[in-house]
Simulated assay, not measured.
Amino acid sequence: MKHSRLAGITTACVAGLFTLGACSTNTDAAQPSEEPDQESSAPADDGRLVEEKDSYVIGYSQSNNAEPYRAQLNTQLEYYVSQHDNLELLPIADAQQDSSRQVSQVQQFVQQGVDVLVVSPNESDPLTPPVEQACAAGIPVIVLDRTVKTDCIAAFIGGDNVAIGKAAGELAVELLPDGGNVVELRGILSNQPQIDRDEGFREAIAANPDIKIVKDQDAKWLKEEGTKVMQQWLQSGDDIDLVYAHNDPMALGAYLAAAGAGKTEDIDFIGIDGLAIPDGGIRAVQEGQLAGTFVYPTGAKEAVDTITKIVDGEEFEAEQILPTTAVTSDNAEEIYTEYDFSAKD
Results as ranks from 00 to 15, higher is better:
50 V>Q: 12
157 I>G: 03
32 P>M: 00
315 E>D: 09
148 V>C: 04
184 E>S: 11
221 W>M: 00
221 W>Y: 12
159 G>E: 00
131 V>I: 15
304 V>Q: 14
39 E>P: 04
173 V>A: 12
53 K>I: 04
74 N>F: 04
212 K>R: 12
231 Q>W: 03
198 D>L: 01
88 E>A: 09
43 P>L: 00
34 E>N: 15
234 L>V: 05
51 E>A: 11
168 A>K: 05
166 K>S: 05
78 E>N: 13
317 E>W: 11
296 Y>Q: 14
105 Q>W: 11
198 D>P: 00
147 T>L: 08
274 G>C: 03
312 D>N: 10
205 I>T: 02
248 D>M: 00
252 L>W: 10
238 D>W: 07
19 T>M: 11
97 Q>H: 11
208 N>K: 10
240 I>C: 03
139 I>W: 01
211 I>C: 02
229 V>I: 11
232 Q>G: 14
22 A>Q: 06
263 K>A: 08
189 L>R: 10
260 G>T: 02
82 S>C: 08
39 E>Q: 08
81 V>Q: 06
197 R>C: 05
257 A>H: 03
163 A>F: 07
167 A>W: 08
20 L>S: 09
142 I>E: 07
37 D>Y: 10
151 D>C: 01
138 G>Q: 10
217 Q>R: 14
266 D>R: 08
114 V>I: 06
142 I>G: 05
217 Q>P: 08
59 G>E: 07
232 Q>L: 08
97 Q>T: 12
141 V>W: 07
91 P>C: 02
16 G>A: 07
123 E>W: 12
158 G>R: 02
243 V>K: 08
309 K>D: 14
74 N>L: 11
223 K>L: 08
142 I>T: 11
328 T>P: 09
129 P>A: 12
180 G>Y: 06
121 P>N: 07
333 E>D: 13
210 D>S: 00
277 I>P: 02
19 T>G: 01
21 G>R: 13
74 N>E: 13
263 K>R: 14
69 Y>A: 03
143 V>D: 05
79 Y>L: 02
195 I>R: 15
280 G>W: 03
108 Q>P: 01
325 T>M: 03
37 D>G: 11
2 K>Y: 15
